[in-house]
Every structure is written in structure tokens, then in C-alpha cells.
Design a protein around this nucleic acid. Structure first.
Length: 868
RNA sequence: GGGCGAGUAGCCGAAUUGGUAUAGGCGCAGCGCUUAGGACGCUGUUCCCGCAAGGGAGUGAGGGUUCGAGUCCCUCCUCGCCCACCA
């Protein structure tokens, strides 16, 4: 056999497909429905890892399948080119970020092409291209006009190492998600996107999309909608009130003190003189605390366990507030367990019914008052509650109110309504919904990003760059390193900085912050529909052809970042009349992560990194693709099994040998021996030939063929690639059992079972394999079988439901639920006949002998169960 | 602490949704390939008793529902991911 030179053959076909422009999809194809399959575009880190292969080459199977099914499938690719890692790497290597990134893009493009995926390179976009970020800026301006982009002073997450602000979503356990440095809180002026305007829609519209449950719940929790009320606590001798947010107005009678976050604006005003010292000391210490310390967490990132016994801290202000429901005077404390930015930054503490308040009250010996009783204790009010105040925990559940004047006896859910209602009439409360979601801080004090198209005029303030002046080009800077003062490096571009105010024409300066990379990637999927448009981010007719995205495959790490931002962009652009849909991705599927062979996350320091280039060199791209599809459920990922890929390699070799043998045999025989009856073994050889040339093929194989077509089709549609590969292996096993086996030296028939396979059947087999191993099947299709047109332009085989129906089935015969025999019977056998057959079995007779059959359970075409 | 998911052979994993548990692959073992070679072919491969026929046990642990449970319900254990003082 000729050795299969995978790298040579794969390159050959990649060039052929590219030259023929197979994958450059037209916006419209006659009589073909458009499908838009999207994978998350890669960050140009410089090297394609196995995870990229998993993310891109496996969905490519579905892309190729749907193309063969007659759809016009767009499968675009691009680069998320701006961002911190590129800039940091460039600093390290003493290069310009642009040069570093362009070099990586060039190299990764080469690597990506080696996958043999059906990417449409003619639509490739890169977020660092002027043509692209012009529109990132343009969209910013549209948002700005509608008040969806604004500048404000706010507490932000500041990474001291990367010297930039981070969005909330980019802070993991109080640390920078890029470098792991502990984040500090800083109050700064920042540009923000008003994503909070869309909080409700972002939650409610999750109903409309087919997304993984985890992603949906992650988004719901992240947005964190909670419905409750704001209650006003009065300050004696003052017109001011302290507003607190609560979801538990039913516990209002149990409020025994008020807690203000250290950031609360009223603290200095209301603190009594003799407490000023201790309060200001407390504020100082909290300021110095990191997020982690404030949470009472250990600093060690791996554990992050709550430190035992450390407990809560706080200080009394000397002031009191009046509970509006019962006019009780309760003390006002300051404690950092209350978060400044959430709700009103103040809470009413109900230690009897809230764990945190309980802990605090216990430590500072503050009173506790039980006002809720568990429902199970109803009617037995003399029995002390299990969760009495003197216990060691608070009762946080709903129940029945006690000690709450006219509301005593109310159920929690009713009391919540009634109490707020009563106070609202006096203007002392209002219903309120709060969200955990913050506005999205989009400005970054770094160089390598999209410049924010704003101008700061000393007279007129911030003014947008006129649209005609877009793009605001990112200037080349010799020293682009971040500065310690928090000012963006762009401030160093002295000439670039100077600009006329669009309002008054006076001297002004450009905004020097750049945008978060997540802004760039929040709309890239729109650009693919019309990537070369000079007049708009995308033409609306072209968008109609493709959008919204039909299937978006990517990693679960984007659940609360990219996927949330993209949805916000889509909704905001929809409201601006720029889009005709308000959800960007109809179907979303998360892929798993490939771990190292040691079941650990791949990392250089662990030395468990699998390099796809080496694998491609050794086994070929086809084998790598197919193995990744085969190794397990796609959503699950899992450890890389170094031995496993050999199985795929063997499978491919068997396919090759099968084709080569049969074609060679057929050729030789049709040329030399068709009419010759004198040669030994002529019968079986002739029979093989007859099968090969017959149109209907081997009837004995048609059942397995049609079953496989059905199975593989359904599995690909479900993205259940591993079981699809399995089915193909089973098919090959069946074919080989039924086919001529020839030794390499000659035409010796070694098996008696030989029945042969027809050319149409072989071709069907290759078509089924084409999405999985595009290069191998193309080689066999065009070279071995001599077809003129590419297999990737072929139609996907259809199955005939009639040929899937089994003639016989295996009837399982059970006695008392235990399988005792399996009998092959005609399909569709009814109970009476089945019982007769089953009772004929010796083994069944043995088990039933001497007893009476009490009951028979019969499942057609499956089993019969005798209960004795 | 909360949420979600998972646990099946030596390993990766299947299982028509409640109907023969372990398909397919890896690994391992045996045999074959009238020249070698293997990324070749065939056969076997859950455990225990048995020459075999056959029987018993068996899907993290324990219990339940059912003629029948990997699948449904309850309790618990382990692992993974996400969130986390959000009032």
C-alpha cells in the first residue's frame, strides 16, 4: 500500500478549496436557506492551542454537514486583536503592540488554515483594523447621543499591576482576571455604558433564546434583580431620612439598628461629636482594606475560605434613627459588611432573621427581636420556636408575623405588601427593584485599544468627535507603557492630543482613554455580514440575510461577560433603529475544556500542554479533528488521552485500505478476468465485482447503511459528535465483515463471508465521513474513485425509513424481571405469539416449572416478562 | 455559604429517555498474515463459581417507587464549574 502522506495531501486540498473559493459564501444563494454558524473569534496570542482546535474544528463538522444538506452556511473567522495581553507581551519583547499582533495574526492564520475548516476568510475581520474600529467608535457615538454612554465619577476596580480600570465582570475573587493581582477600589472619572437600563430586558428576554441553562442562570444571577422596597428611617431633628433597601419589609418590626456602608454620604453629618474619632478611624481602616479582607476572606487565592472567628467589624455613630412603622429609636452603626454601591448603601438590621445582622448583633451585643415564626409552628404558639433568638442562628425563612402590632398573624408574603403599602401612603416607603448589575465601565488607561472618540474642551466640557472625523486613529507611540498616575499613555501623544473643540472651535484635547476589548467584541458578529462596508457598520439588507446568528459555539467563561455585553449592544442598537432583532444569538452551546493528560488544566508550568501542530504533523489534521469530535461529549470536554488518537488513525487507514483494495480489485478484474473462467476462486471474485458494479449495492448492508445515515445526521444536528463517530466506526466494521479482504501481495480472498459492496455504497460512506475527515475523503473521492467534482459539493445522503425497519428483533424474555433468554423473532409480534415463543424456550421452562404465571408484561418488539 | 452539573470497565465513554448495562475507541491477551514489518487482519476482554450449559453480583453509598431503575423520588459522600456579606 502506498503510504498516506497526510501533510502533503491535506495541503494540496486546502489549496484546491481555497482556489475554488468553496467557503467564500455568497450573501444569497438560489434556493438555499442561509445559516450563520459562529465561533468566538480568537485572541491573537501567537500560537494556536488544542483548545482552539476543539472550538473551531469540531463545529466545522456541523458546518460541512449543513452545507451538504443544501444550506448556504456562513462560517466566519477573525481576530480579537486589541487588548491588554498583546500590550503586555509587546512591552516584554520590546516591540510595538501592533507589530506583535500582526505577526501573530499572520502565524495563526496559517495554523488555522491547517485545520481544513470551512472558514470564509474573505469575511475575516480584525478589531484593530481602522476599518473596524471606526465603527466601534461610531456605535459609541450613537450610544452617547442617547445617553447610553456617559462619563461619571465612580468607584472602580483598579488593577495596580496593569495600571488600569477593570469592569466588575473582569474581577474574579477580588483579583484582576488578566494578571491575578488584587484589585483596589479607586474613585475616578470613567466612561460607562448604561447596561443597567437593560437589566430587565436582559433577564426577561432570556426566555426567547435557546441557550444552556447554566448560561441563563449565570446571567440572571449576575444581573441579580431583587424586588423589594425602600423604607425611610427618620432622623430626629432633621429633614434628612435614611433610606434602606429591603426585600423583607415583613421583618420591619424586628429592626433593632441601622447599618451604613462606610461610603455612605450621611456618616460625617450625623455622627455625634464624641464618636467622630472612632468613626473616622474606622473609615480609614476600611479604606485600606482590600476587597478580599472586607469580605472576611483569606488572602490565599486557592482557599478563599471565610476566616473563622474574625467576624464583622463596625462602629457606633452615636446617632439614632426612627423606625417609621413603630417610631422606635434605633442606633445607627457603620460597618463594612454593607456595600456602598448596592441599594442605598444602608440597611435595616434584623438580627433575628438575617444571618449577617445576627452575627454583627451578637458581637456588638445589640438587641434581637423575633418577629417571624416558622409556619410549622402555627397554632402551637406556646411551643418555643426552634429558631428562637437565643439560638445560634437567625431564622431567614418566611413565616407568620409575631409581635408586630396590627400585622401580627400575617403571613410574610402578605405582610411585605401591606407594610409597604401603609408606609407608602405616608410617603415613608416605596416599592423598589434593585440590581446587582453595574453600569459597564468601558474606559481603560492603556494604549492598545480603540480610542474613545470624545474631545475635552476647557470651555464646553466633553463633546463627541463629529462622525465625519471618524475614525480617531490610534497614534503610534514610542513609549506606550502605562503610567502610574492613572492617565492613559495616549496623553503622551502631544500632537495627536491637540484638537479643535467641535462646539466652540477653541483649543481642546482628545480623550486619552481607550476602550475595553469587550467593546470591540460586542458587535463583531454583525460585521461578518458585511465586512468591507465603508459606509456603515453593516448594510441592513445584508444583515437581514444572516442575522441573528443561528448557532454560536464558545466557552462557558463568557457567560457573564462577552455574552451579556453582546446582548446589551444588540438591544441598544435595536432601540436605536440600527438592528431589526434584539437578541444576537438564537442558539448558544458551550463547549468543554480540553485538559492535560493528567486531568489538570493545561499550562506550561505543569508541562502538560498538548501541541496541535505536533499532532497534525504526526497524524494529520483529519485525525486530530475527528479525535477531538470522538473523545467525549462536546459540552463536556475532558482530559486528552494521548493514546486515543491512534484509534482514529487506524480507522482512517482502514477506510483507505478498503477503498484502495476494492477499486484495485474491480479495475483488475474488469480489465483482465471479466470473461475468464479458468482462474481459481473466480466465483467469489466475480461476485465481488458484480456487487461493486450494481446500482442497488449489497442488500444485506442497506439496513446498517440507512441506520447509520439516520444516526449520524441526527447526532450532528444535536452536536453529539462522539456518538456520530462511533456510528461510522460501526458501519465500517460491518462493511469489513462483509467485504473482500485481500492480502497486499495479490488478490487472495481470505474470508468466506465475502459478499462485496457497491460503488454507490462506498460513495455514501465517504459522504458520511466528509464532514469529519474532509481531506481524506476528498482524496479518495477524487483520486481513488476518480470523481470530477469535490465531495464537499456533494449532497448529504438521505435514508429510506423503510430500510431501517428491522425484520427481526431480539425479544428479551424475563422471569420476575430477570432476563433469562433472548429469542430472535419477527418484528411486530403480538403478545399471544410472543408468549408462545417465549414459553418454548428451555431455559424459561426451567424457571417457570411448577409454578403459576400470575402476570405477563409485554412490551412490543422489546420484552416479555413472566411474573410467577 | 448559594447555584448548576457530574460520578458507569484498567482509561475515554454508549445506553432508543423506565426495558438485555458496558456500544464504539484506547489498553491488554491470544492467534494469523505460504517475505518482513505494523499506525495490518481476526478472536477474546465487568467481577465471582463452573470444563460447559448455566447461575450469582454489578452503574459513588444507603433507602424508596415499580413486573422492571444507570435513568424517577429521598438522605448522604466525592469531584468539577460558576457566583459569593447583594439586605
Amino acid at each position: 500500500m502506498i503510504k498516506y502522506n497526510s501533510s502533503k495531501i491535506e495541503k494540496k486540498w486546502q489549496k484546491y478549496w481555497e482556489a475554488k473559493k468553496f467557503y467564500a459564501v455568497k450573501d444569497k444563494a438560489t434556493k438555499k436557506e442561509n445559516l450563520y454558524f459562529l465561533v468566538e473569534f480568537p485572541y491573537p496570542s501567537g500560537d494556536l492551542h488544542i483548545g482552539h482546535w476543539y472550538a473551531f474544528s469540531v463545529p466545522d463538522i456541523a458546518v460541512r454537514y449543513w452545507r451538504m444538506k443544501g444550506k448556504n452556511v456562513m462560517y466566519p473567522i477573525g481576530f480579537d486583536a486589541f487588548g491588554l495581553p498583546a500590550e503586555n507581551a509587546a512591552i516584554k519583547n520590546n516591540l510595538q503592540p501592533e507589530d506583535w499582533t500582526r505577526k501573530n495574526i499572520a502565524y495563526m492564520t496559517k495554523q488555522l488554515k491547517s485545520m481544513g475548516a470551512a472558514f470564509d476568510w474573505s469575511r475575516a475581520v480584525s478589531t484593530m483594523d481602522l476599518d473596524y474600529y471606526k465603527w466601534t467608535q461610531w456605535i459609541f457615538l450613537q450610544f452617547y447621543k442617547k445617553g447610553l454612554a456617559y462619563r461619571a465619577k465612580t468607584f472602580v476596580n483598579w488593577c495596580p499591576k496593569d495600571k488600569t480600570v477593570l469592569a466588575n465582570e473582569q474581577v474574579i475573587n477580588g483579583c484582576c482576571d488578566r494578571c491575578g493581582t488584587e484589585v483596589v477600589q479607586k474613585e475616578m472619572f470613567q466612561w460607562m455604558y448604561k447596561i443597567t437600563d437593560y437589566a430587565d430586558k436582559l433577564i426577561d428576554d432570556l426566555e426567547k433564546v435557546d441557550w444552556p441553562k447554566v448560561t441563563k442562570t449565570a446571567q440572571r444571577n449576575w444581573i441579580g434583580r431583587s424586588r423589594g422596597a425602600e423604607i425611610h428611617f427618620l432622623l430626629p431633628n432633621s429633614t434628612e431620612t435614611i433610606k434602606v433597601f429591603t426585600t423583607r419589609a415583613d421583618t420591619l418590626y424586628g429592626a433593632t439598628y441601622i447599618v451604613l456602608a462606610p461610603e455612605h454620604s450621611l456618616i460625617t453629618k450625623l455622627t455625634k461629636d464624641q464618636y467622630l474619632d472612632s468613626v473616622s478611624r474606622y473609615l480609614e481602616t476600611t479604606k485600606k482594606k482590600s476587597e478580599l479582607e472586607r469580605l472576611g476572606l483569606e488572602k490565599d487565592p486557592p482557599s478563599h475560605k471565610a476566616t473563622e472567628g474574625q467576624g464583622k467589624t463596625g462602629v457606633f455613630t452615636g446617632a439614632y434613627a426612627v423606625n417609621p412603622i413603630n417610631n422606635e429609636k434605633i442606633p445607627i452603626w457603620v460597618a463594612d459588611y454593607v456595600i456602598g454601591w448596592y441599594g442605598t448603601g444602608a440597611v435595616m438590621a434584623v438580627p433575628a432573621h438575617d444571618e449577617r445582622d445576627f452575627e454583627f448583633a451578637k458581637k456588638f451585643k445589640l438587641p434581637m427581636k423575633q418577629v417571624i415564626k416558622e409556619l410549622s409552628n402555627m397554632g402551637t404558639s406556646n411551643v418555643p420556636s426552634e429558631h428562637s433568638v437565643s439560638g445560634d442562628s437567625a431564622y431567614e425563612g418566611d413565616g407568620v408575623l409575631v409581635d408586630s402590632r396590627e400585622f401580627t398573624g400575617f403571613k410574610s408574603e402578605d405582610a411585605r405588601e401591606e407594610i409597604v403599602e401603609k408606609l407608602a401612603k405616608k410617603g415613608l416607603a416605596e416599592r423598589k427593584t434593585n440590581y446587582k448589575l453595574h453600569d459597564w465601565v468601558l474606559s481603560r488607561q492603556r494604549y492598545w485599544g480603540t480610542p474613545i472618540p470624545m474631545i475635552n474642551c476647557p470651555k464646553c466640557g466633553y463633546k463627541p468627535v463629529p462622525e465625519k472625523d471618524l475614525p480617531v486613529k490610534l497614534p503610534k507611540l514610542d513609549d506606550y507603557k502605562p503610567s502610574t498616575d492613572g492617565r492613559s499613555p495616549l496623553a503622551k501623544a502631544k500632537e495627536w492630543l491637540k484638537v479643535k473643540c467641535p462646539n466652540c472651535g477653541g483649543k481642546a484635547e482628545r480623550e486619552t482613554d481607550t476602550m475595553d476589548t469587550f467593546v470591540d467584541s460586542s458587535w463583531y458578529f454583525l460585521r461578518y455580514a458585511d465586512p468591507h462596508n465603508k459606509k456603515a457598520f453593516a448594510d441592513s439588507d445584508k444583515m437581514k440575510n444572516w442575522l441573528p446568528v443561528d448557532l454560536y459555539v464558545g466557552g462557558a467563561e463568557h457567560n457573564t461577560m462577552h455574552l451579556l455585553y453582546s446582548r446589551f449592544f444588540t438591544k441598544a442598537m435595536y432601540d436605536l433603529g440600527l438592528l431589526e432583532f434584539n437578541e444576537p444569538f438564537v442558539v448558544r452551546r458551550n463547549h468543554g475544556i480540553i485538559l492535560g493528560p493528567d486531568n489538570q488544566k493545561m499550562s506550561k508550568s505543569r508541562g502538560n500542554v498538548i501541541n496541535p501542530d505536533d499532532l497534525v504533523k504526526k497524524y494529520g489534521a483529519d485525525a486530530v479533528r475527528m479525535y477531538l469530535a470522538f473523545m467525549g461529549p462536546y459540552e463536556q470536554g475532558g482530559p486528552w488521552n494521548p493514546g486515543g488518537i491512534i484509534g482514529i488513525s487506524r480507522f482512517m487507514e482502514r477506510v483507505r485500505n478498503l477503498l484502495n483494495r476494492i477499486v484495485k480489485l474491480a479495475d483488475t478484474w474488469s480489465k483482465n478476468y471479466r470473461e475468464d473462467t479458468s482462474v481459481n476462486n473466480i466465483k467469489s471474485k466475480k461476485e465481488s465485482l458484480r456487487f461493486y458494479e450494481s446500482a442497488e449495492g449489497n442488500i444485506d448492508l442497506s439496513n446498517i447503511f440507512h441506520k447509520t445515515i439516520k444516526k449520524v445526521s441526527e447526532d450532528i444536528e444535536k452536536l453529539s459528535f462522539n456518538t456520530a463517530v462511533s456510528a461510522l466506526m460501526i458501519l465500517l466494521n460491518s462493511i469489513q465483515e462483509e467485504t473482500t479482504d485481500i492480502s497486499p501481495g495479490g488478490f487472495k480472498v481470505t474470508h468466506t463471508k465475502t459478499r462485496g459492496i457497491s460503488k454507490p455504497q462506498l460513495e455514501t460512506f465517504l459522504r458520511l465521513l466528509a464532514p469529519f475527515v474532509p481531506h481524506l475523503t476528498e482524496e479518495l473521492w477524487m483520486n481513488t474513485l476518480g470523481n470530477k467534482k469535490s465531495i464537499h459539493l456533494e449532497k448529504w445522503p438521505e435514508y429510506d425509513p423503510k430500510l431501517i425497519v428491522e425484520e427481526t428483533i431480539k425479544l428479551v424474555v424475563q422471569v420476575n424481571g430477570k432476563a433469562r433468554d433472548v429469542i430472535e423473532v419477527m418484528a411486530g409480534l403480538d403478545e399471544t405469539a410472543a408468549r408462545e415463543v417465549a414459553l418454548g424456550s428451555e431455559n424459561i421452562k426451567k424457571h417457570i416449572a411448577g409454578t403459576e404465571i400470575k402476570k405477563i408484561i409485554f412490551v412490543k418488539n422489546r420484552l416479555i416478562n413472566f411474573i410467577i
